[in-house]
Amino acid sequence: MYGGGYIPGSASPQEAPKEDPEKLAEFEEKINRGEKIEPHDWMPYEYRRQLIRMIEQHAHSEIIGALPEGTWITRAPGFKRKLALMAKVQDEVGHAQLLYSAAETLGKSREQMINDLLSGKSKYSNVFNYPAKTWADAAIIAWLVDAGAIINQTTNSKGSYGPYCRALERICWEESFHLRYGYDTVVALATGTKKQRQMVQDALNRWWRPIMHFFGPPDKISVHTEKLVRWKVKLATNDEMRQQFLNMYVPKIRELGLEIPDPILHKDPETGKWVYSDPDWDEFFRVINGNGPCNKERLAVRKKAEMMGQWVRRALRNPRQQYVTPLA
């Protein structure tokens, strides 16, 4: 799963050093030729800064994203769902591990990144600041949020930074299983008893807006520089990805007899684009600035986990320890 809607940092010209024009030209040519940039290659300050931010946000989204779904592992209905959900949430934590490693190649340690998450300096996907109230919420997340993530990540995997692209390819492969699991779970509910159908409809009603927000603010108000596109940090606009999602999933949702809670949602036959109600972008910004329904809870849980694990990490760092090599 992934936090879409990457929020680029403000440009910081006073920090950014003046780049060597020759090296910069060489760097840009390399990207133009479709080659990947690797950790030891020269790269502009701003490229490094934006990539760290982006990969870090993605990694944080994976560990925070494990929380709303994780709470349903202990309540999953039956063996098969329990096993599948454990495997899925485990994958998400594994993605965080991969992504922190990818970001570390750019010079920021995992510890620093986690500290920035806990202090609120660094963001994660807004979508995880909403509660997963029922089993059906966990099902909708696994199907539709992961579907959004796949669109987002498949796009980003064609970017220019080698370690991030390779991590994303592997992540997308795993996400495709999550999507199937999520779809199967939603189908079971949507074709089940009246109570189950109501449960999944309610969950869709709750999650539709956060899912529309998932791809980030509309292009007309979203700040992303032409430079990030040229450097293949940003490969598709938020609106393009949102349209792609609607194209692929609106028919599938309707096919299951579920009603999408947007009365004006339709595809304009002339433009071929989906028309939808304004999903309240003020809310999006309110939530991203820390005032969503679960922001405080999510960070509090993370902080508690960090605090409880401190003594373990201290013991791992102790040079006196006798056993230092992991077996697997």
Partner: peptide, 16 residues
């Protein structure tokens, strides 16, 4: 129940 809460990420994964 440790998934998401382990002392290091690798432990969340191992316990899962």
């Amino acid at each position: 129940e440790w998934i998401g809460l382990g002392p290091i990420l690798e432990e969340d994964i191992a316990l899962a």
